[in-house]
């Protein structure tokens, strides 16, 4: 096999000094027309997600639907068991004593909303994902420590190895730019 002229690359990774520099860099990259990018930081920075065009997450809707389904199914289960399937006369209370069903309905609402939120987070983020090309860059370990990174994927229509590297190097407060092997 002949050595490839241009090695397969996943994209470019630029490191910045501070959260504010990452916010500025993301905005400039978006204004320059890049679309397939992501920020990486040791703690959440809402402004980066805003600049990436992800102003609102889906988690609220996921949890609302999960909670409503759980509560409805729970209440119907309680009603069906106590009224239809296994009617018990408890201290002369009506079979459909709905107020007695509220505690369990509430607990099931919380449980199903929480579980759907966590499953939703993992599913939407594509986790667990033990391998990712970004982990090939040794410096990326700082993304969980004190590093603020902006990655631009090669899949971006505007991506060009040399031009993108030059663009990232031109951003304010940039520390380094590295190529991410695929």
């Amino acid at each position: 096999m002949s050595a490839p002229e241009t090695p397969q690359t996943w994209g470019m990774l630029a490191e910045f000094d501070s959260a504010d520099a990452l916010i500025t860099a993301t905005r400039k990259a978006r204004e320059a027309g890049y679309t397939k990018m992501d920020g990486h930081s040791p703690y959440p920075i809402g402004e980066v997600a805003d600049e990436l065009g992800f102003p609102r997450s889906e988690i609220g809707a996921v949890m609302f639907i999960g909670g409503m389904v759980g509560a409805t199914m729970g209440f119907l289960m309680l009603t069906w068991v106590s009224w239809v399937e296994y009617p018990l006369n408890i201290a002369g209370k009506p079979y459909f004593s709905w107020s007695m069903f509220i505690p369990i309905t509430w607990e099931l609402l919380v449980l199903s909303a929480s579980v759907s939120g966590v499953v939703g987070l993992l599913a939407l983020c594509g986790l667990p994902m033990p391998y990712h090309p970004l982990f090939n860059v040794p410096a990326f370990a700082r993304a969980t420590k004190d590093g603020f990174f902006l990655s631009v994927e090669a899949a971006d229509p505007k991506f060009d190895a040399d031009a993108t590297r030059a663009f990232l190097l031109g951003l304010p407060d940039v520390k380094s730019v590295e190529e991410v092997p695929a």
Binding site: S41, F54, F140, T144
Partner: peptide, 19 residues
Amino acid sequence: MGWRGSAMHWRRYEKLYLL
């Protein structure tokens, strides 16, 4: 689980945490 501090992931994460 392969957490990489992605801004997109953080956005969902914070919302989940708050809820």
